[in-house]
Write a protein that binds this DNA or RNA. Structure first.
Length: 580
DNA sequence: GCCGTTTTCGGCCCGACTGTTTTCAGTCG
């Protein structure tokens, strides 16, 4: 057996690579789709695939049947997969990279390899420049030219960006579009992964309804945010913004808004499943309409109608990942997802006592503007590489200040907590008698994140088992697009959190969004409770709460799963251990 | 290769665009 069992992501990658290679090979498309679906199942799993394997439950997972279960078994037993190795002997794995080039799909990649022996982007570019592509079957002068041009864009292609970045840009675009297009625009919204609130975003997808699409397209292309128009037709435009982001706009007839919004929101897997369901019910679903078998159309101006016609409740976009939401909608057991307005307080924020930018009182003012009933000031303990972690003496002084500020306002309660460092050796940066004085204790990892799984898991478990610790802050320590989180045994973490009643934080800071929604869902199934906190270091950061709530929703969380939707007394009773 | 209140076999999402394969395959979302 391999030293360390492969992660879900690594196994998913194997099956997605198999799918790509089979595609290049020209295999049966449904077999290819089966591997892709299996890969997606594994990627979105909230538990280690390894655990399912150990328990012999692999085939209970959707899209994993006997053949793929046997391959997973081989992977975990031997650390290798003979099937993939044989496939790679026919078609090198490098070819998968070529699929990323626009206009290059499996057929053309195969032709490139078999006719010219091309396996890399560099070889592709050289051949294109030398005019050796145009005579290949399935190519031509135009395709050759397009590929050369596409290689430019592949190079300057922006990577994914944080949800917050894309969301702010999209909001600004929508606002500008509405202000400029006037009555030509009936409505406009975000679609795609942005509407599903994924933590990172590729392109910005927008949808508009208008009786005069050309006018809306024209206005869109002239917005001040637009740097370059990549493509503009009568109902569709793609532009590059000055920020480097690509934004796509589609314009549809208002009476087809519902089907269009449903379609452009995705995810692809959700849509495919929904269309399969439509077929079972005798409809053919597209972005334009629901079509009966006799060819007559049912137009849906609202998204709710699309789902309703298929016998489903409307499914919130955050759930549309084909992760059981369609089945839940069928039996009317969709969760009643938590809403931003239900958050009563923020339990994690910093002030100038440590690395925050504002004083206690300034943060309180900002929190009052949010209408919060309570907040907890949680500055850093010492032991972190941050100057100004509070030693015990300063912690006492801060307590006096918090009490003074608290006495000043009767519309909000200000509590003292701390974000206590879980040190590399697994101990906490404050002794228990100090922790006991605090209203709320958050324990967080900031260092030693790259320790081996067993070691870093043990540290976190020790914190969870400390009776003075109420919350585990940003559990994995990941920084989106920059740094992987710690290699935690999440199964053990969630189990311990459920047993001890320690809450897990969904950190709403856009670069964290940690706990990740797939684990949120698993945590809830295991009986954990959660909190959503901003970890604010400035007044503006309090606005990040929405991102945290969105991720909670993506994890199927309801208000009752989130402790800081509770009134203060109930919250404190829970933390004292005599409630909840 | 997976899946099943029509099925353990015969299905498996839909539509647009593009270039070239002159009736459609390949790619994309």
């Amino acid at each position: 057996m391999a030293e360390r069992p492969l992660s879900n992501q690594e196994v998913a990658r194997i099956f997605s690579d198999i799918a790509d290679l089979l595609d290049i090979k020209g295999e049966n498309r449904y077999r290819i789709m089966a591997y892709r679906r299996a890969a997606e199942t594994i990627e979105n799993l909230g538990r280690d695939l390894y655990t399912y394997w150990q328990e012999g439950h692999l085939q209970e997972l959707p899209h994993i049947g006997q053949a793929i279960a046997e391959k997973i078994d081989e992977i975990f037993r031997t650390g290798r997969l003979g099937y993939l190795e044989r496939l790679e002997a026919e078609y090198p794995r490098q070819l998968i990279e070529l699929l990323r080039v626009p206009d290059l799909g499996p057929r053309r990649v195969r032709t490139l390899y078999e006719r010219l022996g091309i396996t890399t982007i560099e070889e592709l570019e050289k051949a294109a420049r030398e005019g050796r592509l145009r005579d290949l079957p399935g190519f031509g002068p135009k395709v050759e030219e397009n590929i050369l041009r596409a290689l430019e864009t592949v190079r300057r292609q922006k990577d994914r960006v944080l949800l917050s970045v894309a969301w702010e840009q999209a909001s600004a675009l929508l606002e500008a579009l509405r202000a400029t297009a006037g009555s030509a625009l009936v409505r406009a919204e975000m679609a795609g992964s942005l509407r599903r609130r994924r933590a990172t975003i590729g392109d910005i997808d927008l949808l508009a309804a208008s009786p005069v699409p050309e006018q809306v397209i024209e206005v869109f292309c002239r917005l001040p945010q637009v740097a370059e128009v990549l493509l503009a037709g009568s109902t569709k435009a793609s532009v590059q913004l000055h920020t480097g982001q690509q934004a796509d706009l589609r314009v549809v007839e208002p009476r087809r808004w519902g089907t269009a919004l449903q379609y452009f929101t995705g995810s692809k897997a959700h849509n495919i499943h929904l269309r399969e369901l439509a077929l079972e019910k005798g409809f053919s679903l597209s972005e334009y309409s629901l079509k009966r078998e006799d060819g007559t159309e049912i137009l849906c101006a609202e998204e709710e109608e699309v789902y309703q016609r298929l016998g489903l409740r409307w499914i919130p976009p955050e759930l549309r990942e084909d992760a059981g939401e369609i089945e839940a909608a069928l039996e009317d057991s969709l969760p009643k997802l938590v809403r931003l307005e239900e958050i009563r307080g923020d339990l994690h924020m910093h002030t100038t006592w440590s690395d925050g930018r504002l004083s206690v009182e300034q943060m309180v003012q900002a929190a009052r503007a949010h209408g919060y009933e309570y907040i907890v000031i949680t500055d850093h303990s010492p032991g972190l590489g941050i100057v100004g972690g509070l030693d015990v003496e300063r912690l006492q002084k801060q307590r006096a200040e918090i009490l003074t500020v608290n006495a000043k306002y009767d519309d909000i309660t200000v509590l003292q907590g701390a974000e206590v460092e879980i040190r590399a050796d697994g101990t906490l940066a404050y002794p228990d008698e100090v922790l006991a004085l605090l209203d709320v204790v958050i324990a967080s990892l900031h260092t030693g994140l790259r320790q081996p799984r067993e070691q870093v898991t043990k540290r976190l478990l020790a914190a969870i088992h400390n009776p003075h610790v109420h919350i585990v802050g940003h559990p994995t320590g990941r920084l989106l697009l920059r740094r992987e989180g710690a290699d935690l045994d999440m199964e053990a973490i969630l189990k311990a959190a459920a047993e001890t009643g320690t809450a897990l934080e969904i950190n709403a800071s856009p670069e964290r969004l940690d706990l990740d929604p797939v684990y949120v869902r698993q945590a809830l199934e295991m009986g954990c409770l959660l909190v959503v906190n901003t970890d604010a270091h400035h007044a503006d950061d309090l606005d990040n709460m929405r991102y945290g709530v969105w991720q909670a929703r993506r994890g199927w969380a309801e208000a009752e799963d989130i402790l800081n939707t509770r009134p203060l007394e109930a919250l404190l009773a829970y933390f004292r251990g005599d409630g909840g």
